[in-house]
Design a binder for these strands. Structure first.
Lengths: 378, 378
DNA sequence: AACCTACGTCGGAGCGCTCCGATGAATCGG
DNA sequence: CCGATTCATCGGAGCGCTCCGACGTAGGTT
């Protein structure tokens, strides 16, 4: 038994010879196109079986110009958010006969640039990308110009005029914040990641950035503004996008002379890190602090207390992106569409009416709070 | 602006013409092989840049017979275990210039068979697979015969004589169980998944199956046996491999007339599901029940109490598999090697000395228990 | 009977690239 | 000064497949 039994795989030509039919006829039979009489078909199939013929999809792709492969670029497959998305993509792609090449960008525009180029060179039929930077997309529009279908995931880039599948992060953050406000909270903190380039405005302004974190931060600010609450810059924390980052920012928050009475986090990593920090400080939730997380992951149900979170349809995000991409690949025309998938607030036990004697904290669990009912505190 | 600006990408031929050099010379320059004089190289590169030349890797693969692509087949990318593994693989593969095609098998041998075939037809240079069934591997040995390097992940198949990267699940389970025994527990339950085909022996026997779950179950049984404890079949629960499955089995366990005083779970899904069930029943851990989980995921630190678990080097599992595969692809000869990566027990707060008056429960936290010190109970 | 249509069959021309063998110019030693 | 070696350059032959146009034979029409 040799180490390399590479016995040179049989090709269509070999099969044709073995079945004593023309080369093209064998090709048609095996490739499943054109027409071929039943007898001949049988002969060819038999020969193929005995020779152990396996088509070379690369050659096929070469000839057809279509690889039946999708490129997927996400920040980090270890992040459950992206893992679930990829699963959604994969579940749609495979039945349609597409394989998926997966690349992690770690939110680095440069990694993404390289990855996307490589994917294009590998002749993928389309690309799904959760863009790392919303202001650095030259590589993406380049692709687009070359006619490669591309679908944006989780983050839209309006200038790109590409299909996109997103959630309404602004509204989601706003609803969550409204809920906290309705519970009477006035000192509400947010733990978001540094990728939210939005400067903190005194008043609410539409988001300058369209990055996921920036949009959610904007929603948070908008809710505060609508309620007439001043923004305390100390309560807006931008963590490095890791559990450790969120951990330390949440810790810093509680070290404040005047700590917040509620914390909102903007993604599952921030949620985990912040929650761990609170846990380690033995801060009682919701008695001492209300907590509103983001992403309805399995573990949010089993911590104490179970976390109230913004639930987003993660799997569907991926599945929809894949469907959209397949549509484009099949030649669906029409201008780029942005699909906004619905989020919803999941109320578990981690928020409650603010305890320390705030006036006008009477409306409970009313979401969103009717404008004007909640008055500015200072 | 047309919808399909497919302006037909420039090829080596076009570049050669534009630079007025021979076709092969341009090819050598762009392909980075052979030799070419500096002036000519400059001309070619310039022409390539102005034409926006992008190599077609498919064509290159066709010509070289190597695709610089790896196939990876795991059960489910949504499972954090596999997500982390894939990250490990990817981190090793990409710097080496390999892309990764990812496929989910859902532990179904048939899905795996189809996937693996497709990957081979797509001419991947090698395959990493966490085999769904250890007794159904014809498709894998077929590949092997065709000379395609293949590395087994998480589960070995000795008959296959392929490289494999695994942990010593038997020993890990044994250590964890020993720990529980040392704490005086006599009624120790295990929640494992149905894929552990091992019949429950009265006494310990080496595992008939080499499936992951089967091995861990065997380790559990071995520890009981060594301690002279009889196996109560009611305490061996095989759940469907989902959170819900583990949830209901753990629940059933606590409904027993004589429930266990300790529970051991054999993977992260079982751990989550079982823990959730205990949580929902308001069973106090570790006061009412000791709990030992598997897989040191982030959330195990933030539940109450923090979970003691068997930690396995998940990322390294993937990275090592990739390194092994790359080695084979580069032609490293030698017989198949099985790499066993070390696990370790992480003690947090979820186990404690058994409370209800068992005799001889004096040795605490001694792991593993000295043979003979713990006597059979009945 | 002569004709047209339809369809199974066939070889060949690509797809874009790498690799091989050949060519010609330049460099070196005797 | 000429033969021998070196090296940039070149076209062509593949890699395995699909697709196109051509061919031949059968069936149906007038």
């Amino acid at each position: 038994m040799p180490t390399h039994p590479k016995k040179k795989a049989a090709t269509v030509r070999d099969v044709a010879k073995a079945a004593s039919v023309g080369f093209a006829t064998a090709a048609r039979t095996l490739g499943g196109y054109g027409s071929v009489s039943p007898e001949v078909r049988g002969r060819v199939l038999l020969a193929a079986a005995t020779l152990g013929y396996r088509p070379n999809r690369l050659a096929r792709s070469m000839a057809t110009g279509t690889s039946r492969t999708l490129g997927v670029v996400v920040a980090d497959i270890e992040n459950q958010f992206f893992a679930r998305i990829v699963r959604g993509i994969s579940d749609v792609a495979r039945p349609a006969g597409f394989e998926v090449i997966l690349v992690n960008s770690d939110e680095k525009a440069n990694e993404e640039r390289v990855a996307v180029r490589m994917l294009a060179e590998k002749q993928v039929d389309g690309i799904i990308v959760a863009p790392a930077a919303v202001n650095d997309f030259g590589h993406l529009s380049e692709l687009q110009d070359s006619g490669l279908p591309i679908v944006l995931l989780d983050r839209n880039i309006p200038q790109l005029a590409a299909d996109a599948v997103v959630i309404d992060g602004m509204n989601a953050a706003e609803e969550a914040t409204d809920h906290l406000i309705a519970l009477g909270h006035r000192r509400i903190a947010i733990v978001t990641d540094v990728l939210s380039e939005t400067p903190i405005p005194r008043d609410f302004r539409p988001p300058a950035s369209v990055a996921t974190a920036g949009i959610r931060l904007a929603g948070f600010l908008k809710a505060l503004h609508r309620a007439g609450l001043a923004v305390d810059e100390l309560l807006v924390r931008r963590a490095s996008p890791t559990i450790a980052g969120a951990y330390s920012e949440a810790g810093a928050l509680m070290d404040l002379t005047s700590p917040p009475t509620a914390i909102f986090t903007t993604d599952n990593v921030m949620t985990l890190g912040a929650f761990e920090a609170l846990q380690d400080r033995e801060i009682r939730i919701p008695q001492d602090l209300s907590f509103f997380g983001f992403d309805d992951l399995d573990w949010t149900r089993i911590v104490h207390p179970p976390l109230s979170v913004v639930a987003q349809p993660v799997y569907e995000l991926g599945a929809t992106a894949a469907q959209t991409l397949l549509g484009r690949i099949e030649g669906r025309a029409g201008s780029a569409q942005v699909r906004v998938l619905p989020t919803q607030l999941v109320h578990r036990g981690s928020t409650r009416q603010v305890s320390n004697g705030h006036r006008r904290a009477k409306s409970i669990n009313r979401v969103p709070v009717p404008p004007g009912e909640i008055r500015p505190q200072t």
